[in-house]
């Protein structure tokens, strides 16, 4: 109310001012705000345009089929080969693996937060999850490099622990926070009556959670999964530090390169067609992300209905 009062006094103080310049000002401000409003659209168009313009030439030169399905990437060889199938498959497997490990843990943790935990404990765990979400990806990469990579090397008796498996573990940890918070929201949104009815029919609390509440929150949990996929497929720095960075076809204990790390690792010294091919990889990654965004939007839209 105080704000309103000051607004009134401000206004009353200025009523003597003429009307016409104000209209001019209104028009200018209207224009400025409209421009600001459209800026997000402009940015999206700019990003798309720049990626297409710089990514398409190399695809044309290499041939789209050779580029997407070639399984050898040898950009610095005498007769360079630009096949990005290893990167695509690594990104797909890595993301799948992260989802397979991260989603069950995240979902169980969300159930704990929403249904089981005492309010105070839930609050503490929730702030822990928030903190996990805020930790920079380079820090995750550092922990992965120092703890997970040597551990994987020792446990599986490998010459080098920097491989797809280590990357999957790091990615699974990184998607946990978003999976937990989105699924928790979904679980909490399930009507109370469902739970009460189930309990009244004699189901135990645990049965109610897994047979009634989780199925009812299915679409929200699906949102969490797709969000996790988006995060996992786009992660670059942490993966770069633990995946070994060799352009192999994916194997659980092979050093691999993801779509994201393929772009980042050669960018600083590349030139010519090699550099253009890197932009093409980015374009492919962008297409993947756009598809995931689209799916996410469709799910969210369906949920609202």
């Amino acid at each position: 109310m105080k704000i309103l009062e000051t607004a009134i006094t401000n206004k009353l103080g200025k009523t003597t001012k003429q009307a016409k310049p104000v209209n001019m000002l209104e028009m200018i401000m209207n224009l400025i705000f409209t421009v600001c409003g459209l800026i997000a659209v402009v940015f999206v168009l700019l990003i798309t345009a720049f990626l297409i313009v710089s990514g398409v030439p190399a695809i044309k030169e290499i041939g789209i089929i050779d580029f997407l399905t070639g399984d050898i990437w040898a950009s610095t060889a005498e007769t360079p080969l630009y096949g990005i199938l290893p990167f695509i498959m690594t990104s797909v497997y890595g993301t799948l693996g992260a989802i397979l490990i991260g989603v069950p843990i995240g979902l169980l943790c969300a159930v704990f937060l929403a249904e089981i935990a005492h309010k105070k404990i839930a609050g503490i765990v929730r702030s822990a999850v928030d903190l996990l979400a805020g930790i920079p990806s380079a820090v995750y990469g550092l922990i992965g490099m120092i703890i997970i990579v040597p551990a994987v090397r020792e446990i599986f008796d490998l010459p080098d622990g920097a491989n797809l498996f280590s990357a999957i573990i790091v990615l699974a940890i990184m998607i946990l926070p978003s999976v937990i918070s989105v699924s928790e929201t979904a679980i909490k949104a399930v009507p109370k009556e469902y739970k009460e009815a189930s309990l009244a029919l004699g189901a135990t609390k645990t049965e109610t959670v897994f047979k009634v509440i989780v199925p009812a929150a299915k679409s929200g949990i699906l949102t969490a999964v797709v969000l996790g996929i988006g995060r996992a497929i786009g992660e670059a720095m942490a993966v770069m530090m633990v995946a070994g960075n060799v352009a192999n076809m994916p194997g659980l204990f092979k050093s691999v390169r993801f779509l994201t790390t393929a772009v980042a690792s050669e960018m600083s010294y590349s030139s010519g067609l090699q550099r253009e091919a890197l932009f093409s990889i980015a374009l492919v990654l962008f297409v993947f992300i756009m598809i995931i965004n689209l799916v996410l939007n469709l799910i969210v839209k369906r949920n609202k209905r």
């Binding site: 997000a40 659209v41 940015f43 999206v44 720049f50 670059a236 990654l285 756009m290």
Partner: peptide, 22 residues
Amino acid sequence: IELAAETLAGIPSIIYGLVGML
């Protein structure tokens, strides 16, 4: 506009790096 903002939020940072460079 809201769709555009959501799209921006979903783009991974490595792509921002690349586009920023371009």
